[in-house]
């Protein structure tokens, strides 16, 4: 089979088709120049979705029931503690970043302990633990918005030839994670556990260790996302993580990763992130009211999942 005819069977292709379609519609309404600017903005904002979605993708790939709902709280807590500690001082950038990383490590470990030791299903464990993390964020700074050090803010919004630097960094990260998923022992173990946990165990894979590393990795990625997001948008806010809960799952699923687990790809994450940003921008550009916007967004997402989720007969 030639690569071209096999393309429609790639689960990630639909997200990209959707993204390009939205982009063409925006350009047909607003012109080529606007199209370029919108794409640059999409890359900026899509980057944050991708960081989080990479982690969620690994978790979802572990198989049915695996999903992490503590991510918004992790983003908020990481950003809040780091910004509060640095208090705008550029000399504290590195320790601030380390604080973010530790928040991720602690949350990932706690999540996994709840799942493993108390045998709580991941959805419930991560959701209930997220109240703990969110409350800690509220308690630590009462919602006061501390500005990031200027150098962090500048870095988060800087661009080379119209391409955000952060996007380039996350692109490199994506390639590394794709390699991890498809070429390393850890990645293949994640896929194997997702396909059949019992078989994976019998084959000698240490299932719980794989799960632990996966949840840990996700929390750390979310914490990093929080750190840069606070830099990008001028400070941490208590509700800054809110939209990443559903979006992290939507991006993974639209991107063609199997909800049933065991089958994942990173190419689709970028397509889906760009698609969602461009979709909302297109609907805003066309001036649809919020009600219609939500209906159209929902319908298109369902449509894409229906098409991309269909198992090919071959």
């Amino acid at each position: 089979m030639s690569p071209l005819t096999s393309l429609p069977q790639k689960p990630w292709i639909w997200a990209w088709i959707g993204a390009i379609l939205m982009w063409l519609i925006i350009m047909s309404v607003s012109g080529i120049v606007a199209g370029g600017q919108v794409m640059s903005a999409a890359a900026s904002f899509g980057t944050f979705f991708v960081i989080v979605a990479i982690g969620q993708m690994f978790v979802i790939t572990l198989g049915p029931g695996n999903v992490d709902l503590s991510i918004p709280a992790c983003i908020t807590l990481s950003a809040t503690l780091a910004m509060k500690f640095m208090n705008g001082d550029p000399n504290l950038l590195l320790p601030g970043f380390l604080i973010s990383l530790s928040v991720g490590l602690v949350i990932g470990t706690l999540n996994f302990l709840l799942i493993l030791l108390l045998r709580i299903p991941p959805i419930i464990a991560t959701l209930s633990a997220s109240f703990l993390y969110q409350s800690t964020a509220i308690w630590s700074n009462r919602g006061l918005r501390v500005k990031p050090p200027e150098v962090l803010g500048d870095f988060a919004v800087s661009k080379i030839l119209g391409v955000p630097i952060l996007t380039i960094v996350v692109l490199i990260l994506s390639v590394a994670m794709a390699f991890t998923l498809h070429r390393t022992r850890f990645g293949l173990s994640v896929l194997a556990v997702g396909q059949n946990q019992k078989a994976a165990k019998l084959a000698g894979i240490r299932v719980e260790r794989v799960r632990f590393l996966t949840y840990l990795m996700y929390a750390v990625l979310a914490a990093i996302c929080g750190f840069f997001l606070a830099g990008f948008s001028g400070g941490a806010a208590l509700n800054m993580g809110e939209q990443y809960l559903l979006m992290s799952i939507a991006v993974v699923v639209i991107g063609g990763t199997s909800v049933a687990g065991g089958d994942a790809n990173l190419t689709g994450l970028w397509g889906a992130s760009l698609f969602i940003f461009l979709l909302v921008s297109m609907l805003n550009t066309l001036g649809l009211s919020a009600g219609y916007r939500l209906i159209v967004t929902g319908a298109i997402i369902v449509g894409i999942i229906a098409i991309s989720g269909r198992k090919s007969a071959i």
């Binding site: 309404v29 606007a34 600017q37 919108v38 903005a41 509700n239 800054m240 921008s281 805003n284 550009t285």
Partner: peptide
């Protein structure tokens, strides 16, 4: 143009960035 910013700086920033070029 009209966008929803959810009373949050980061959401508003994103929504405005998306519609502004048009």
């Amino acid at each position: 143009g009209s966008v929803h910013g959810d009373w949050a700086q980061d959401v508003a920033q994103k929504a405005v960035a998306g519609i502004l070029p048009s």
